[in-house]
């Protein structure tokens, strides 16, 4: 049975299911319960995180398992990593992925390394939930998409769910995975509604989803850019070109096979990624395909990304900054011949 749920509700659902299933699962972060040390907020009506995603969880599981922390990322992230290394399955919320600078050592140099450096004897079953994405008029320090930073580091798993169904299944996989996993929740997707399976289910990592089949072009959309890709695909279809749209769902591990097999069929690849263009997921996928599917390429690989610039605060500039269906179509037109599209 499936029911309609928002992306935000699907996360809340997943966390409750995990916490009911395993008492070692705890939630830790800034304001994840809300109202700590505030008398009238101790039992109900607490904030539940900056976007209210974890609202109500403290009421069910109490403040021993839902821990509000001071605004000190290094402190609580370090605590979460240690808790994971010593037997718990913490879900640590980094309010915005932009704040990783304050606790990068805990993630990059501790959590990511333990299993390797202790010869497999240690495990760090830590899930970091964090918020990314532009398009929310949240300016340069609250709008980045930094998943490439973590994809770069061995020992971390990186998840970029694009739908309510996916976030629930992938988050549950993350929580019960024995490695540190960082889950990127795009803040603009929280209100998105979609069908979500009832009860406990997981979605395996490293398994991309083909959102739309096509033979003329492969578009890999990362995170919410899957929808930009789907809109572009609809417009391309009106011109007689069928684009295959792939959602990789996890960047580490990456489902190379699905992407490469698609490119073998279509001969063309566009990667849509709202992150910065240099050393990015888009660049990485382009390199993998250029390397492993060279003989199948019928056109240069194109990346539709943000410019190499911070996210602007001005709403019109931010709109211009983001990938758009038109940018994808423009890229495609340069791949197939400049005269194919004049206007779409």
């Amino acid at each position: 049975m499936a029911k309609q749920m928002t992306y935000s509700e699907a996360i809340n659902d997943a966390i409750r299911l995990a916490m009911r299933k395993d008492e070692n699962v705890i939630l830790i972060g800034e304001d994840v319960a809300g109202g700590a040390e505030v008398d009238h907020l101790q039992n109900e009506g607490a904030w539940g995180g900056v976007f209210g995603v974890t609202k109500g969880i403290v009421e069910e599981f109490g403040r021993t398992r839902v821990l509000d922390t001071p605004i000190a990322e290094a402190g609580y992230m370090g605590a979460a990593v240690s808790a994971a290394a010593t037997g718990l399955r913490p879900i640590s919320e980094l309010m915005f992925n932009d704040f990783i600078g304050s606790c990068l050592d805990e993630v990059m140099n501790q959590a990511a390394k333990f299993h390797y450096m202790f010869g497999g004897k240690a495990k760090v079953p830590l899930t970091i939930r964090t918020i990314d994405g532009a398009g929310f008029n949240a300016a340069a320090q609250h709008s980045q998409s930094l998943y490439a930073l973590f994809t770069h580091i061995p020992g971390l798993k990186v998840v970029v769910p694009s739908s309510p169904y996916d976030i629930k299944g992938l988050l549950l996989t993350a929580i019960f995975d024995d490695d540190p996993v960082i889950v990127f929740e795009d803040k603009t997707l929280y209100g998105m509604k979609g069908e979500v399976g009832e009860g406990f289910y997981t979605i395996p990592f490293g398994k991309a989803e083909i959102k739309r089949a096509g033979k003329d072009l492969t578009i890999v959309g990362i995170g919410k850019q899957v929808y930009t890709a789907l809109r572009a695909a609809d417009q391309l279809a009106k011109k007689g070109f069928e684009a295959e749209v792939i959602d990789p769902r996890t960047l580490s591990p990456l489902d190379e096979d699905t992407i490469i097999n698609s490119v073998k069929k279509t001969g063309r690849l566009i990667i849509v990624d709202e992150a910065y263009p240099r050393c990015s997921a888009a660049t990485d996928i382009a390199a993998i395909v250029g390397d492993k599917a060279f003989d199948y390429l019928d056109a240069p690989i194109k990346r539709v990304t943000a410019p190499h610039s911070p996210v602007p605060f001005s709403p019109p500039l931010e709109k211009l900054y983001m990938p758009s269906p038109q940018k994808i179509i423009d890229a495609f037109s340069t791949m197939v011949g400049d005269n194919v599209f004049t206007t779409v």
Binding site: G267, D295, Y296, L297, D298, A299, T334, M335, G337
Partner: peptide
């Protein structure tokens, strides 16, 4: 294009005799 070059090899097509219709006259798989 790489795909065109590969197909030309298997189909034994002399690429110099093929007219390219892609951008900048690039010979495509088609």
């Amino acid at each position: 294009s790489p795909a065109a070059r590969k197909l030309a090899r298997t189909e034994k097509i002399d690429l110099k005799t093929v007219k390219g219709t892609g951008p900048l006259g690039r010979i495509t798989k088609a």
